[in-house]
Amino acid sequence: MNYLEFEEPIKQLREQLQKAQELQDQSDVDMHSTVADLEGKIAEVTKKIYSELTPWQRVQVSRHPDRPYTLSYIEAITGGRFEELHGDRTVKDDKAMVGGWGFVDDQAVMFIGQQKGVNTKMRQYRNFGMANPEGYRKALRLMKLAEKFNRPIVTLIDTPGAFPGLEAEERGQGEAIARNLIEMCQLKVPVICIIIGEGASGGALGIGIGDRVLMLENTWYSVISPESCSSILWRNWDHKKEAAEALHLTGENMLELKLIDGIIPEPLGGAHANREAIYATVKATIQEQLSKLMPMDPAKRIDARIKKFSSMGVVHSA
């Protein structure tokens, strides 16, 4: 278990609990009441901490090292009935973007999402979840495949941004993301997008045009990360907390601004505190939304999708 700095009280209580349990196991001392007491306290403290998260703390939770990533969600939601598909059919197979056919109960679904690595080696292998143009092109290829065979699409978004590299620019990072935006607007099949971690900018939006765009409770979605925002506008990295506030990047903020369609609640203490619970919630959400979206006429669904994105933006009428 890894703990964030504001989770320190939880950490201390958990350590006490562990000690109490060890004592219980190793000796005849009856620790039942102490254990129950501590468990109650942990729940209470966790609830308090997590109900008062600041925007910056939410950003931290969204990057929690124990937080589940895209493939873990897909494996759990499909019960292992998933086959990954590779390649953009042009230059490369991008390891930062994954996708493939999976079955949610009996419904075939095309899953797509950015993938982060679970340890140092895998983080490098996955390029920290930062996709190159070929990743966005693979995603589009798979979306087109889903459209061809009339299967819904679920995208799971978790990226610190599209990869800002030399070759990425050479191969047209901007074009690749732009292409996805226009193509996704016209997909004839239902599209559900769920931000499961970080939703950074165009790199997130590149697989983020959907009939439903939902954010898990402890995630963020904005035009830039708080750190980068701080470094550009404040000209140093020290103002990330203020930047996080200013950016209005939490689920509540985004919902209020009508930029997303809903928030998926996380278990007490965040998605990482109870993986099975969050997998079950996300699966149920996908099924519920699909049951509403699939019976719709494709033309009406596309129309509604376009209207929704067209209505975004706030101006004073001239």
């Binding site: 042009t90 197979d93 070929e134 693979k138």
Partner: peptide, 9 residues
């Protein structure tokens, strides 16, 4: 070919 994007699997 898989690495270069031409095979699904």
């Amino acid at each position: 070919l898989l690495e270069h994007g031409f095979l699904d699997a």
